[in-house]
Design a protein around this nucleic acid. Structure first.
Ligand code: FES
Ligand code: FES
Lengths: 146, 146
DNA sequence: ATAATATACTATAAAAAGGTAGCATTTTAT
DNA sequence: ATAAAATGCTACCTTTTTATAGTATATTAT
Protein backbone atom coordinates (compact mmCIF):
# COMPACT_ATOMS: atom_id res chain seq x y z
CA UNK A 1 0.00 0.00 0.00
CA UNK A 2 1.39 3.30 -1.03
CA UNK A 3 0.13 6.82 -0.88
CA UNK A 4 2.87 8.60 -2.77
CA UNK A 5 3.54 12.29 -2.56
CA UNK A 6 1.99 12.72 -5.98
CA UNK A 7 -1.24 11.10 -4.81
CA UNK A 8 -1.28 13.32 -1.75
CA UNK A 9 -0.84 16.32 -4.03
CA UNK A 10 -3.75 15.09 -6.14
CA UNK A 11 -6.06 14.70 -3.15
CA UNK A 12 -4.92 18.04 -1.82
CA UNK A 13 -5.66 19.88 -5.05
CA UNK A 14 -9.04 18.27 -5.55
CA UNK A 15 -9.99 18.85 -1.92
CA UNK A 16 -9.03 22.48 -2.32
CA UNK A 17 -10.98 22.89 -5.53
CA UNK A 18 -13.99 21.14 -4.05
CA UNK A 19 -14.19 23.32 -0.98
CA UNK A 20 -13.66 26.77 -2.48
CA UNK A 21 -16.37 28.38 -4.52
CA UNK A 22 -14.46 29.59 -7.51
CA UNK A 23 -15.65 29.27 -11.07
CA UNK A 24 -12.21 28.40 -12.34
CA UNK A 25 -8.89 27.31 -10.91
CA UNK A 26 -5.82 28.25 -12.98
CA UNK A 27 -2.68 26.22 -12.29
CA UNK A 28 -0.72 29.23 -11.10
CA UNK A 29 -3.39 30.11 -8.58
CA UNK A 30 -3.45 26.57 -7.19
CA UNK A 31 0.32 26.54 -7.14
CA UNK A 32 0.41 29.75 -5.13
CA UNK A 33 -2.27 28.61 -2.69
CA UNK A 34 -1.07 25.08 -2.16
CA UNK A 35 2.70 25.51 -2.47
CA UNK A 36 3.06 22.55 -4.78
CA UNK A 37 5.96 22.89 -7.27
CA UNK A 38 4.69 24.77 -10.28
CA UNK A 39 5.61 22.55 -13.20
CA UNK A 40 4.98 19.39 -11.29
CA UNK A 41 1.50 20.57 -10.39
CA UNK A 42 0.75 21.54 -13.97
CA UNK A 43 1.68 18.07 -15.12
CA UNK A 44 -0.44 16.57 -12.36
CA UNK A 45 -3.43 18.73 -13.32
CA UNK A 46 -3.16 17.62 -16.94
CA UNK A 47 -2.99 14.06 -15.68
CA UNK A 48 -6.07 14.52 -13.49
CA UNK A 49 -7.95 15.96 -16.43
CA UNK A 50 -6.97 13.00 -18.62
CA UNK A 51 -8.24 10.78 -15.86
CA UNK A 52 -11.59 12.49 -16.06
CA UNK A 53 -11.82 14.22 -12.70
CA UNK A 54 -11.33 17.75 -13.94
CA UNK A 55 -11.63 19.53 -17.26
CA UNK A 56 -8.97 21.80 -18.60
CA UNK A 57 -9.89 24.99 -20.34
CA UNK A 58 -7.08 26.49 -22.33
CA UNK A 59 -6.40 30.06 -23.19
CA UNK A 60 -6.99 33.32 -21.43
CA UNK A 61 -9.40 32.97 -18.47
CA UNK A 62 -8.83 29.25 -18.64
CA UNK A 63 -7.97 26.89 -15.85
CA UNK A 64 -9.43 23.75 -14.38
CA UNK A 65 -12.89 22.86 -13.13
CA UNK A 66 -14.45 19.62 -11.98
CA UNK A 67 -15.77 17.72 -14.95
CA UNK A 68 -18.47 15.90 -13.06
CA UNK A 69 -20.57 16.39 -9.99
CA UNK A 70 -18.62 16.32 -6.74
CA UNK A 71 -20.90 13.62 -5.41
CA UNK A 72 -19.68 11.18 -8.06
CA UNK A 73 -16.01 11.33 -7.07
CA UNK A 74 -14.74 9.69 -3.91
CA UNK A 75 -11.30 9.36 -2.37
CA UNK A 76 -10.79 5.78 -3.47
CA UNK A 77 -11.48 6.76 -7.08
CA UNK A 78 -8.64 9.24 -6.98
CA UNK A 79 -6.21 6.98 -5.13
CA UNK A 80 -6.83 4.11 -7.52
CA UNK A 81 -6.55 6.37 -10.53
CA UNK A 82 -3.17 7.56 -9.27
CA UNK A 83 -1.69 4.38 -7.82
CA UNK A 84 -3.39 1.68 -9.82
CA UNK A 85 -6.51 -0.33 -9.06
CA UNK A 86 -4.76 -2.59 -6.55
CA UNK A 87 -3.36 0.25 -4.45
CA UNK A 88 -5.49 -0.59 -1.43
CA UNK A 89 -5.45 -4.31 -1.97
CA UNK A 90 -1.82 -5.16 -1.33
CA UNK A 91 -0.50 -7.95 0.83
CA UNK A 92 1.01 -6.76 4.10
CA UNK A 93 3.95 -9.11 3.64
CA UNK A 94 4.65 -7.92 0.13
CA UNK A 95 3.34 -10.85 -1.87
CA UNK A 96 2.49 -9.94 -5.42
CA UNK A 97 -1.17 -9.58 -4.64
CA UNK A 98 -3.54 -10.02 -1.79
CA UNK A 99 -5.73 -12.85 -2.98
CA UNK A 100 -8.30 -14.81 -1.05
CA UNK A 101 -7.26 -18.10 -2.69
CA UNK A 102 -3.62 -17.51 -1.85
CA UNK A 103 -3.67 -15.93 1.57
CA UNK A 104 -0.53 -15.27 3.55
CA UNK A 105 -0.53 -15.79 7.29
CA UNK A 106 -1.63 -12.19 7.90
CA UNK A 107 -4.32 -12.16 5.25
CA UNK A 108 -7.54 -12.24 7.22
CA UNK A 109 -6.36 -9.90 9.94
CA UNK A 110 -4.99 -7.46 7.41
CA UNK A 111 -8.07 -7.58 5.22
CA UNK A 112 -10.25 -6.74 8.20
CA UNK A 113 -7.92 -3.98 9.34
CA UNK A 114 -7.96 -2.34 5.93
CA UNK A 115 -11.69 -2.51 5.48
CA UNK A 116 -12.63 0.44 7.67
CA UNK A 117 -10.13 2.56 5.83
CA UNK A 118 -11.25 1.48 2.39
CA UNK A 119 -14.85 1.97 3.44
CA UNK A 120 -14.21 5.54 4.49
CA UNK A 121 -12.32 6.27 1.30
CA UNK A 122 -15.20 4.88 -0.70
CA UNK A 123 -17.96 6.53 1.27
CA UNK A 124 -16.44 9.99 1.28
CA UNK A 125 -17.21 11.91 -1.87
CA UNK A 126 -15.85 15.34 -2.59
CA UNK A 127 -19.39 16.64 -2.11
CA UNK A 128 -19.30 15.28 1.44
CA UNK A 129 -15.97 16.99 1.83
CA UNK A 130 -17.41 20.30 0.76
CA UNK A 131 -20.32 19.99 3.19
CA UNK A 132 -17.90 19.13 5.95
CA UNK A 133 -15.75 22.09 5.11
CA UNK A 134 -18.65 24.54 5.02
CA UNK A 135 -19.82 23.24 8.38
CA UNK A 136 -16.49 23.01 10.20
CA UNK A 137 -14.57 25.81 8.57
CA UNK A 138 -13.56 27.44 11.85
CA UNK A 139 -11.92 24.33 13.23
CA UNK A 140 -9.93 23.54 10.11
CA UNK A 141 -6.50 25.08 10.36
CA UNK A 142 -4.25 23.43 7.92
CA UNK A 143 -4.13 24.56 4.33
CA UNK A 144 -0.57 24.37 3.15
CA UNK A 145 1.55 21.30 2.63
CA UNK A 146 5.04 22.43 3.55
CA UNK B 1 1.58 6.62 4.50
CA UNK B 2 3.97 4.31 2.81
CA UNK B 3 4.76 0.66 3.13
CA UNK B 4 7.83 0.44 0.96
CA UNK B 5 9.11 -2.71 -0.64
CA UNK B 6 11.90 -2.82 1.91
CA UNK B 7 9.41 -2.75 4.78
CA UNK B 8 7.41 -5.50 3.13
CA UNK B 9 10.60 -7.54 2.84
CA UNK B 10 11.28 -6.94 6.53
CA UNK B 11 7.84 -8.10 7.58
CA UNK B 12 8.09 -11.05 5.25
CA UNK B 13 11.42 -12.21 6.63
CA UNK B 14 10.40 -11.80 10.24
CA UNK B 15 7.07 -13.53 9.63
CA UNK B 16 8.91 -16.40 8.00
CA UNK B 17 11.42 -16.68 10.81
CA UNK B 18 8.68 -16.48 13.42
CA UNK B 19 6.59 -19.25 11.94
CA UNK B 20 9.26 -21.87 11.16
CA UNK B 21 10.91 -23.77 13.93
CA UNK B 22 14.54 -23.50 12.97
CA UNK B 23 17.33 -22.81 15.43
CA UNK B 24 19.09 -20.52 13.01
CA UNK B 25 18.34 -18.69 9.78
CA UNK B 26 21.36 -17.99 7.55
CA UNK B 27 20.90 -15.20 5.00
CA UNK B 28 21.39 -17.53 2.06
CA UNK B 29 18.68 -19.85 3.30
CA UNK B 30 16.22 -16.97 3.75
CA UNK B 31 17.18 -15.65 0.34
CA UNK B 32 16.48 -18.99 -1.27
CA UNK B 33 13.17 -19.48 0.53
CA UNK B 34 11.81 -15.97 0.15
CA UNK B 35 13.27 -14.96 -3.21
CA UNK B 36 14.44 -11.62 -1.94
CA UNK B 37 17.58 -10.33 -3.72
CA UNK B 38 20.60 -11.80 -1.97
CA UNK B 39 22.73 -8.79 -1.16
CA UNK B 40 19.78 -6.58 -0.49
CA UNK B 41 18.39 -9.06 1.99
CA UNK B 42 21.75 -9.39 3.72
CA UNK B 43 21.88 -5.67 4.23
CA UNK B 44 18.31 -5.66 5.48
CA UNK B 45 19.09 -8.43 7.96
CA UNK B 46 22.05 -6.47 9.31
CA UNK B 47 19.74 -3.47 9.60
CA UNK B 48 17.09 -5.47 11.43
CA UNK B 49 19.71 -6.75 13.82
CA UNK B 50 20.95 -3.22 14.50
CA UNK B 51 17.36 -2.28 15.19
CA UNK B 52 17.21 -4.97 17.84
CA UNK B 53 14.72 -7.41 16.38
CA UNK B 54 17.15 -10.15 15.50
CA UNK B 55 20.68 -11.09 16.50
CA UNK B 56 23.40 -11.89 14.01
CA UNK B 57 25.79 -14.70 14.65
CA UNK B 58 28.87 -14.61 12.48
CA UNK B 59 31.01 -17.44 11.28
CA UNK B 60 30.36 -21.02 10.42
CA UNK B 61 26.96 -22.22 11.60
CA UNK B 62 25.99 -18.60 12.04
CA UNK B 63 22.91 -16.81 10.84
CA UNK B 64 20.11 -14.84 12.42
CA UNK B 65 17.74 -15.53 15.31
CA UNK B 66 15.18 -13.39 17.10
CA UNK B 67 16.86 -11.44 19.84
CA UNK B 68 13.80 -11.18 22.03
CA UNK B 69 10.64 -13.07 22.68
CA UNK B 70 8.22 -13.11 19.77
CA UNK B 71 5.48 -11.76 21.99
CA UNK B 72 7.36 -8.49 22.48
CA UNK B 73 7.51 -7.58 18.79
CA UNK B 74 4.45 -6.42 16.92
CA UNK B 75 3.88 -5.27 13.35
CA UNK B 76 3.78 -1.58 14.18
CA UNK B 77 7.19 -1.84 15.86
CA UNK B 78 8.71 -3.12 12.66
CA UNK B 79 6.91 -0.68 10.39
CA UNK B 80 7.91 2.28 12.52
CA UNK B 81 11.48 1.06 12.78
CA UNK B 82 11.66 0.86 9.00
CA UNK B 83 9.64 3.91 7.95
CA UNK B 84 10.05 6.24 10.88
CA UNK B 85 7.82 6.80 13.89
CA UNK B 86 5.26 8.85 11.96
CA UNK B 87 4.71 6.25 9.24
CA UNK B 88 1.13 5.56 10.25
CA UNK B 89 0.33 9.08 11.32
CA UNK B 90 0.42 10.94 8.04
CA UNK B 91 -2.16 13.38 6.75
CA UNK B 92 -4.29 12.03 3.92
CA UNK B 93 -3.91 15.29 2.03
CA UNK B 94 -0.14 15.33 2.38
CA UNK B 95 0.29 18.03 4.99
CA UNK B 96 3.57 17.79 6.82
CA UNK B 97 2.02 15.99 9.74
CA UNK B 98 -1.36 14.88 10.94
CA UNK B 99 -1.84 16.99 14.03
CA UNK B 100 -4.96 17.39 16.14
CA UNK B 101 -4.37 21.14 16.59
CA UNK B 102 -3.95 21.65 12.88
CA UNK B 103 -6.46 19.33 11.28
CA UNK B 104 -7.16 19.35 7.59
CA UNK B 105 -10.70 18.89 6.34
CA UNK B 106 -10.30 15.09 6.23
CA UNK B 107 -8.62 14.80 9.61
CA UNK B 108 -11.27 13.27 11.83
CA UNK B 109 -12.58 10.88 9.19
CA UNK B 110 -9.08 9.76 8.28
CA UNK B 111 -7.98 9.35 11.88
CA UNK B 112 -10.94 7.10 12.57
CA UNK B 113 -10.39 5.13 9.39
CA UNK B 114 -6.75 4.48 10.23
CA UNK B 115 -7.41 3.46 13.80
CA UNK B 116 -8.59 -0.08 13.13
CA UNK B 117 -5.54 -0.70 11.03
CA UNK B 118 -3.11 0.73 13.54
CA UNK B 119 -4.86 -1.20 16.27
CA UNK B 120 -4.40 -4.48 14.43
CA UNK B 121 -0.77 -3.72 13.69
CA UNK B 122 -0.21 -2.98 17.37
CA UNK B 123 -2.15 -5.90 18.71
CA UNK B 124 -0.59 -8.52 16.49
CA UNK B 125 2.72 -9.77 17.85
CA UNK B 126 4.90 -12.25 16.03
CA UNK B 127 3.96 -14.77 18.69
CA UNK B 128 0.31 -14.35 17.67
CA UNK B 129 1.44 -14.83 14.12
CA UNK B 130 3.16 -18.08 14.97
CA UNK B 131 0.08 -19.40 16.77
CA UNK B 132 -2.06 -18.43 13.83
CA UNK B 133 0.29 -20.16 11.44
CA UNK B 134 0.41 -23.38 13.46
CA UNK B 135 -3.35 -23.41 13.61
CA UNK B 136 -4.17 -22.46 10.01
CA UNK B 137 -1.20 -23.95 8.19
CA UNK B 138 -3.32 -25.85 5.67
CA UNK B 139 -5.18 -22.80 4.46
CA UNK B 140 -2.10 -20.64 4.03
CA UNK B 141 -0.80 -20.91 0.52
CA UNK B 142 1.40 -18.00 -0.20
CA UNK B 143 5.05 -18.10 0.74
CA UNK B 144 6.99 -16.43 -1.98
CA UNK B 145 6.93 -12.82 -2.99
CA UNK B 146 7.45 -12.89 -6.73
C1' DA C 1 46.40 -24.47 11.43
C1' DT C 2 43.23 -24.49 7.80
C1' DA C 3 39.27 -24.55 5.07
C1' DA C 4 34.56 -23.77 5.03
C1' DT C 5 30.76 -21.01 6.13
C1' DA C 6 28.88 -17.06 7.85
C1' DT C 7 28.02 -11.90 8.48
C1' DA C 8 29.81 -6.79 7.70
C1' DC C 9 31.06 -3.25 4.91
C1' DT C 10 31.79 -0.27 0.88
C1' DA C 11 31.23 1.25 -3.57
C1' DT C 12 28.50 1.31 -7.44
C1' DA C 13 24.71 0.75 -10.70
C1' DA C 14 19.89 0.76 -12.13
C1' DA C 15 15.23 2.16 -11.63
C1' DA C 16 11.62 5.02 -9.90
C1' DA C 17 9.89 9.24 -8.06
C1' DG C 18 10.02 13.98 -7.68
C1' DG C 19 11.12 18.37 -9.65
C1' DT C 20 12.68 22.09 -13.29
C1' DA C 21 13.05 24.69 -17.70
C1' DG C 22 11.70 26.09 -22.01
C1' DC C 23 8.90 26.32 -25.72
C1' DA C 24 4.51 25.19 -28.34
C1' DT C 25 -0.33 25.72 -28.60
C1' DT C 26 -4.86 27.54 -27.58
C1' DT C 27 -8.09 31.08 -26.42
C1' DT C 28 -9.85 35.55 -25.60
C1' DA C 29 -9.88 40.61 -24.28
C1' DT C 30 -8.60 44.53 -26.26
C1' DA D 1 -4.44 41.60 -35.57
C1' DT D 2 -2.12 41.34 -31.39
C1' DA D 3 -0.77 40.59 -26.81
C1' DA D 4 -1.85 38.38 -22.67
C1' DA D 5 -2.99 34.44 -20.16
C1' DA D 6 -3.69 30.03 -19.92
C1' DT D 7 -2.71 24.73 -20.72
C1' DG D 8 0.29 20.94 -23.25
C1' DC D 9 4.42 18.78 -24.13
C1' DT D 10 9.18 17.26 -24.05
C1' DA D 11 13.58 16.79 -22.39
C1' DC D 12 16.38 16.91 -18.66
C1' DC D 13 18.00 16.97 -13.79
C1' DT D 14 18.02 15.45 -8.80
C1' DT D 15 16.96 12.53 -5.14
C1' DT D 16 15.46 8.32 -3.22
C1' DT D 17 14.81 3.53 -3.46
C1' DT D 18 16.11 -0.88 -4.90
C1' DA D 19 19.66 -4.03 -6.45
C1' DT D 20 24.51 -5.92 -7.38
C1' DA D 21 29.50 -6.99 -6.79
C1' DG D 22 33.47 -7.55 -4.38
C1' DT D 23 36.11 -7.68 -0.37
C1' DA D 24 36.97 -7.88 4.66
C1' DT D 25 36.10 -10.03 8.98
C1' DA D 26 34.50 -13.49 12.23
C1' DT D 27 33.68 -18.28 13.82
C1' DT D 28 33.99 -23.10 14.03
C1' DA D 29 34.42 -28.05 12.36
C1' DT D 30 37.91 -30.71 11.04
S1 FES E 1 -2.15 -12.33 0.96
FE1 FES E 1 -0.97 -11.27 2.48
S2 FES E 1 -2.44 -9.90 3.26
FE2 FES E 1 -3.62 -10.96 1.76
S1 FES F 1 -4.26 16.75 9.27
FE1 FES F 1 -4.94 15.81 7.40
S2 FES F 1 -5.56 13.86 8.09
FE2 FES F 1 -4.90 14.79 9.96
Amino acid sequence: MILSKTTEYALNVLAFMATRNKEMYPADYLCKELKIPRQYLKRLLTDLSKKGFITSIRGRNGGFIFSRDLSTINFLHVIEAMEGPEAMNTCLLGFTACIVDHPCVMHDLWTKARSKMTETLTNTSFADLKNKYDKDKKSIAQIIIH
